[in-house]
């Protein structure tokens, strides 16, 4: 374990611990509005200042981290597994299956998502508690995010299918799911990892965009997505550097995750 990885572990643990301890660490709830001091700079009461309607930014970052840090990877996991199943299996089976899966994936990618999401919103009830809204949001992201990864995976699985070791395994009498899960899937792992890590920031940001369709994390619950969306109107980073905290946090956490996991990969591969 090298120094960078150790540091990354420490950072991740610290971020997790702090966000889990939000109930004790946060000076106030994420929804409490300090209406006398909206958009205020950092102070002793509000370590990161307050947002446009006077909510404590520090508390919102803590709670937002808790939500995004759990749910974005969960959604990425769902989408990566779906991609592995659809893309990996199709590539491995080859022939007609690969063609069917490729056209299905292409169709899925070319669907007018905006309209489908609007339809999804129309099907869901309006009175959804903020917490359920979070789960729905990330579930939708997970379900929708698989197609691009599946494409990459089916190409790799296709080349694995023709590899010597798969032939060798078949000659040893292996077949069916066993052959796929033992011999094909582990070799897709590096690609799966890559797809997984690419998905997380994409999902965090998509969550913010889903808010436009009434599907995102509902107010007053914070998320990294909604915190990042607040940066849109930022005039000058120099004047309000504390507002960059969510962005910095996102970068730090993702980098740490990657450091920790890339090392694992080297050992197992």
């Amino acid at each position: 374990m090298n120094a960078a990885r150790k540091l990354a572990c420490v950072v991740l643990l610290a971020v997790c611990a702090v966000s889990l301890a939000a109930d004790w660490l946060a000076p106030s709830g994420y929804a409490k509005q300090f209406r006398e001091v909206p958009s205020s700079p950092p102070s002793r009461q509000h370590l990161l200042g307050t947002d446009e309607i006077g909510r404590d930014r520090f508390a919102r970052v803590l709670y937002g981290t808790r939500i995004s840090l759990v749910l974005a990877p969960a959604a990425a996991l769902v989408s990566t597994l779906l991609a592995a199943l659809v893309g990996g299996l199709a590539g491995y089976l080859g022939g007609i299956w690969l063609r069917i899966a490729t056209s299905f994936t292409d169709l899925f990618l070319s669907l007018p998502w905006l309209f489908l999401l609007i339809a999804v919103r129309a099907l869901l009830p309006l009175n959804v508690s903020p917490l359920s809204s979070v789960l729905i949001t990330f579930f939708i992201l997970g379900l929708l995010g698989w197609a691009a990864s599946a494409r990459v995976l089916s190409a790799s699985a296709d080349s694995l299918r023709n590899s010597d070791f798969v032939l060798q395994a078949q000659a040893s009498g292996l077949h069916g799911p066993r052959l796929f899960f033992v011999h094909v899937l582990p070799n897709l792992k590096p690609i799966l990892y890559a797809q997984f890590w690419i998905s997380i920031p994409v999902f965090i940001l998509s969550e913010a965009n889903l808010g436009i369709l009434g599907l995102g994390v509902a107010e007053p619950l914070p998320s990294w997505g909604s915190l990042l969306r607040e940066l849109e109107g930022l005039v000058s980073f120099r004047e309000e550097p504390w507002r960059l905290v969510p962005l910095v946090l996102l970068i730090v956490v993702l980098t740490s995750f990657q450091l920790v996991l890339s090392n694992n990969e080297e050992v197992t591969a």
Binding site: S163, L167, Q168, T268
Partner: peptide, 18 residues
């Protein structure tokens, strides 16, 4: 693999790298 088995040409490629 039980009654009939096969050994292929390139040993490293025939072993699953993972």
């Amino acid at each position: 693999g039980r009654s009939l088995s096969l050994v292929l040409q390139s040993p490293l490629a025939s072993l699953n790298p993972a």
